[in-house]
Write a protein that binds this DNA or RNA. Structure first.
Length: 1074
RNA sequence: GGGCGAUUAGCUCAGCUGGCUAGAGCGCACGCUUCACACGCGUGAGGUCACAGGUUCGAGUCCUGUAUCGCCCACCA
């Protein structure tokens, strides 16, 4: 190793305490210098690849990300050590709407020119769009750098040379190409539909960007006068029930259920819509719920039987409107204020409607109040009932989403080539029985075997695809991939054909090659939309109408120069950008060079595993699967591992939007990176989310305390923005919530406070334990003479080697199953409870002696293996200790456990377990020693004998057993501070002695015992044994048990019964002798 | 409304296809500055496994129901 800081020269270089901050930076540097993470497709080994779920550049990472990335790093480091050609592809996501609105908010908050002003500039042709995007770009640069640093601080072994961003040029190229292909294949279409509109950010949202929240609202019962076709009132009323009175301005029908006897008679009549005086029909549609006061269905209880139909502002009403060919009247502007200029039919002449005028320009909230008031004043409000119901809110601006009728681009994910392929890709073993046609399709099944861990998430994936709807991919934003479509509308007829079309019937705009070579669709695709919809001009040419009709030409191209030509020809580029998830969906391909057929793509796609949280299965996993299958005919990854979510101390999800996130760097600061990684890994079980109570560190004093909590927006518990510690001291600080929510600004007197959590203590302690165990080993190995070969292994040596092999096997098994908890926990127990508590203690008496030669070898090998096994989860401390070990003891390993040496642990070989080292005899014998040692310690403690006081111990066993026990007795005596004074068949129990029993005999600890205490202890034990015997007898006395239960279990029960009876006898004997 | 998951020691969590005298870490009690480690060592106390039924020789583990909590999905009359 070339550096001097990371590598230790000898054991004395290891300070008594492990201080992560003193070690981590140098280790990071050593890895970087060695280029340890770089992957090359031409390198050997089986491919292993992980794509990072690219974090949004909206904000810094929190502990949820730390967990996500730690697990990926564990897998990657393991794969790398195991000799695979491993790559971990890093990157970030532009997160369109989220980033745009975060930046806009920040600009507003700091009094700078914000989105609104830039939009005005853009409208005036002053380039506001590009100027704003630059602002967002600055933000992105800042946070991308910060996120990258966080990942590096965590020790993430990404191949940083491959850092990607969903909006950089290679990814942009992939997006254009993908869009183009889908467009060309007819899977992207433009549709006028109801979308989820966010009136604040003024963009459409995908279904999954809408969050349902329960809202306390009202049911309003409004009376519409019934009339005839010409508007003549009958004096009767139809009372509609609605939660959204303001949309009544756009009503185009009233519906009743034809099976609703009392009301069906109204079908065919009309109502005169109040305020707007529109005469609209009463129609029959079985969607309408029939009122029933006694129903279980709350809707039936609340319903009036008359449903107002507003196709432009309610998805259900839209469907009804389609069924009955109703007009669609949009009554709102994009900001959701009441408007008569966004779709109101001119023949109604709304400008002249005096009654309507007061409502125009009102927000939908105000309009609701005013309209209700109008109905009340005009005696048309029948009733108002409180009603709690779910309302969709923008996940970004948190205002209710407005169903809004507008032009959008859709991706036809319902097509079998997308949806069907995704369903068929599921591993057969994880499919639910299904009626879905996709499973019966004859279509080629390109790839199969997509597997989820835990399995249950396969169901989420399947259900999502079975119910999938077309994906609205356009967003009215600036921050994103601009849609590569240019369009132009023009009036076309036979008379102007010569100006527009050439002889071949193709449209002429100076782009002859596009149209002349109509089948050469490599870079350009055209859709022509005429009055009757999409024109299949490729088959039939364009049938020109006699009278001029409107045709719109949509040209999709991946080439910028062609875009410019199109613009010169009067085409306009679509102003919208693509949904963020469109570029994310290409991630496993675009990070490997797609659309080029690169060696990387060949080797690493499909990637090995996707590691993510469950919330993203529908948004992201689904779309990656569909795209990768569609474009490359294979899966984006073979496995999907869904891990837990990190919750705060109140059981709330840790998230940026809640502001309760904890910066991993804070934890690294308080506990070290390895401690954080270890704790997070060991907390990862298959079922549970992780609850993590968070404390605050007072920056004035460095003292940790539990912050004061307040109830924040949305009813969540959050740390108060400013904290005082101790209360009343006047020493104030800004909490991480205060920072994240922008509700408090740190100052010199009121600095920002870091977070910590005692949950990470376990990792910190473990790192320290490992550190100290290594210090012990190095201290002894350093002095080791060249080993005398003729020393044989002790029972402890054989035992620990056996246990080490089992630890290797367990680690392999658990990692392969994504069982992170047991991987981490198993090694913790191995290192702490077996290596440190027993092996190191057992070896102490001989470790510096000539007869300890073999033990020194074993100790070095066991330590070597432990460091290798732990490296994926605790890379820093293990790497540091590795260099120290290599320095002191460059040659290590025993037969069967001798992986290749390597300068750096990060690229060292993963240990393989030679099962020949598994030694049942040693395990059994050492187990007995452990049992006896335990009993002696128990007696010593019970008798309150100081550990320093050496006690005599005599053993009664047969002579031949005594011979085999010699080694074990020596060990036992050393570990319990006892002198063995007699061993043999004639050993008598002294008067003052505690009896220790073991399978092969018994021992006497010569100690003045407290008769009363000993009597209590024995009596208690006696009762336990009696109870146990009773249970076992009950079992054995049950003929059904002895006949039905497996024989070995019955035998086991008999053995247990016998053992308990034997012990009971001894206990009773001891009691009688007290 | 549909689906998934959780409910085990004071706290945070393990307990795979039923065999447990139910485990771990923290916390707690007692004793130890034992020459790697007090971020330690040793010993111990602490649980009718949410509740009610059922299947079984046997249930923390399987089934049914109830309650509470969480998450995901769902077209806001």
């Amino acid at each position: 190793m070339s550096d001097s800081t990371a590598a230790s020269k000898n054991a004395a270089d290891l300070p008594p305490k492990y201080v992560p901050a003193d070690v981590e930076p140098a280790i990071t540097q050593a890895w970087e210098q060695a280029n340890a993470y770089a992957a090359d497709a031409s390198g050997g080994g089986d491919p292993f690849a992980i794509c990072i779920p690219p974090p949004n550049v909206t904000a810094a990472l929190h502990l949820g990300h730390a967990l996500n990335n730690t697990l990926q790093d564990v897998l990657t480091r393991h794969a790398r050590m195991a000799g695979k050609n491993a790559v971990w592809l890093p990157g970030t996501d532009h997160a369109g709407i989220a980033t745009q609105s975060v930046v806009d908010k920040r600009l507003q908050a700091t009094g700078q020119k914000a989105l609104k002003e830039y939009k005005l500039d853009e409208a005036e042709g002053k380039g506001g769009r590009d100027a704003f995007i630059e602002k967002v770009q600055d933000w992105k640069d800042e946070y991308e750098a910060r996120i990258t640093q966080q990942l590096k601080d965590m020790g993430c072994s990404c191949d940083w040379e491959r850092q990607a961003f969903t909006m950089d040029e290679p990814r942009a190229k992939a997006v254009r190409e993908a869009f183009f292909q889908l467009f060309k294949d007819g899977l992207i279409y433009r549709g006028k539909r109801l979308v989820n509109w966010d009136p604040v950010t003024q963009t459409a949202l995908a279904d999954d960007e809408v969050e349902m929240e329960d809202i306390d609202g009202n049911f309003y019962y409004m009376k519409y006068p019934v009339c005839d076709a010409s508007g003549g009132k009958t004096g009767d009323f139809a009372t509609v029930a609605t939660t959204r009175p303001e949309t009544m301005l756009g009503d185009t029908a009233v519906a009743v259920n034809p099976d609703d006897k009392p009301r069906a008679q109204y079908i065919g009549q009309f109502v005169k819509l109040p305020i707007v005086d529109r005469v609209i029909p009463i129609i029959g549609d079985d969607y309408v719920v029939i009122p029933d006061e006694d129903s279980d269905d709350s809707k039936a209880r609340m319903a009036s039987g008359f449903l107002k139909v507003t196709p432009a502002h309610d998805p259900n009403d839209y469907d009804i409107g389609q069924r009955h060919d109703l007009p669609i009247i949009n009554v709102m502007a994009p900001d959701a204020s009441i408007s008569i200029t966004h779709g109101w039919p001119t023949e109604e002449n709304p400008e002249a409607n005096e009654t309507l005028k007061p409502f125009v320009g009102l927000s939908r909230e105000d309009a609701r109040k005013v309209i209700v008031r109008w109905f009340k004043d005009n005696d048309l409000l029948a009733e108002v009932k409180p009603y709690r119901h779910a309302v969709g809110h923008s996940y970004r601006s948190h205002v209710p989403v407005e169903p809004y009728y507008s032009d959008q681009w859709y991706l036809k994910v319902t097509d079998d080539k997308l949806k069907g392929a995704a369903l068929r890709a599921m591993d057969e073993s994880q499919r639910q029985p299904s009626e879905d046609a996709a499973f019966n399709s004859n279509a080629d099944t390109q790839a199969t075997g997509l597997k989820f861990t835990p399995e249950r998430y396969a169901k989420t994936f399947q259900t999502w695809h079975e119910n999938i709807r077309d994906w609205c991919i356009s967003r009215q934003l600036w921050w994103g991939h601009r849609i590569p479509v240019w369009s132009k509308s023009l009036q076309v007829s036979q008379s102007n054909a010569a100006e527009v079309f050439d002889e071949a019937g193709f449209y002429v705009i100076g782009l002859d090659h596009i149209f002349q070579h109509g089948e050469d669709w490599k870079e350009t695709a055209i859709t022509i939309v005429g009055p009757e919809g999409i024109v299949d001009y490729k088959q039939n040419g364009l049938a020109l109408p006699a009278e001029p009709e409107q045709f719109t030409f949509f040209v999709c191209t991946t080439r910028d120069d062609m875009g410019k030509e199109l613009e010169a020809a009067g085409f306009e580029r679509d102003p919208d950008v693509l949904d963020t998830w469109f570029s994310s969906a290409l991630w496993p391909m675009s990070t490997l060079g797609w659309p080029e057929k690169t060696p990387d793509l060949d080797l690493w796609n499909p990637t090995s595993v996707l590691c993510t949280a469950r919330e993203i299965i529908t948004l992201w996993v689904s779309r990656m699967v569909m795209f990768n299958l569609y474009f490359e005919g294979r899966l984006p990854f073979k496995d999907v591992f869904i891990h837990a979510m990190i919750q705060d101390g109140h059981g709330q999800k840790m998230s940026k939007s809640l502001g309760n996130g904890v910066d991993p760097v804070d934890i690294i600061h308080s506990h070290g990176s390895d401690a954080m990684r270890y704790t997070l890994t060991s907390m990862t079980t298959q079922t549970q989310d992780v609850r993590l109570p968070v404390d605050t560190i007072d920056p004035h004093s460095g003292i940790t305390f539990t912050p004061k909590f307040i109830t924040g927006p949305g009813g969540y518990k959050v740390a108060a923005p400013t904290q005082e510690h101790p209360p009343g001291s006047g020493k104030q600080m800004v909490s991480s919530y205060g920072l994240a929510s922008g509700t408090a600004e740190p100052t010199e007197d009121m600095p920002a406070a870091r977070n910590t959590s005692e949950k990470f203590d376990i990792g910190q302690r473990f790192a320290t334990k490992l550190w100290n165990a290594t210090r012990f080993a190095l201290g002894n190995l350093a002095d080791a003479k060249p080993d005398a070969v003729n020393v044989s292994m002790s029972v402890a040596d054989r035992w620990i080697l056996s246990r080490t092999v089992r630890a290797v096997e367990a680690a392999d098994k658990h990692l392969a199953a994504y069982d992170f908890h047991n991987y981490a926990n198993g090694l913790y127990q191995f290192v702490w409870n077996e290596v440190c508590d027993w092996y190191v203690e057992a070896v102490k008496p001989v470790i510096r002696e000539p007869e300890g030669a073999k033990s020194r070898q074993v100790l070095a090998a066991v330590l070597d293996t432990s460091l290798r096994l732990l490296h994926p989860v605790m890379p820093f401390v293990t790497e540091r200790l590795w260099s120290a070990l290599s320095e002191v003891c460059p040659q290590r390993g025993v037969e069967g456990l001798d992986p290749a040496e390597n300068e750096l642990l990060v690229t060292a070989e993963w240990p393989t377990a030679d099962r020949a080292l598994i030694d049942r005899d040693a395990e059994e014998r050492f187990g007995r020693i452990q049992g006896v040692v335990g009993m002696i310690r128990e007696v010593r403690n019970g008798a309150k004998v100081s550990p320093k006081e050496s006690l005599d111990f005599s053993v009664k066993v047969s002579d031949d057993v005594a011979a085999t026990l010699r080694e074990g007795l020596a060990l036992m005596s050393a570990m319990t501070n006892t002198n063995i004074v007699a061993v043999g068949p004639d050993t008598e129990k002294p008067d003052n002695a505690a009896v220790v029993t073991a399978p092969l005999g018994e021992g006497y600890l010569h100690v003045e015992i407290d008769t009363a205490a000993e009597s209590d202890r024995l009596t208690k034990r006696k009762e336990e044994l009696e109870k146990s015997i009773k249970t076992l007898d009950g079992r054995l006395g049950n003929e059904k048990y002895t006949s039905k239960a497996p024989a070995h279990l019955v035998q086991q029960t008999r053995d247990q019964r016998a053992a308990a009876a034997a012990e009971l006898e001894r206990v009773e004997q001891q009691l009688s002798q007290l």
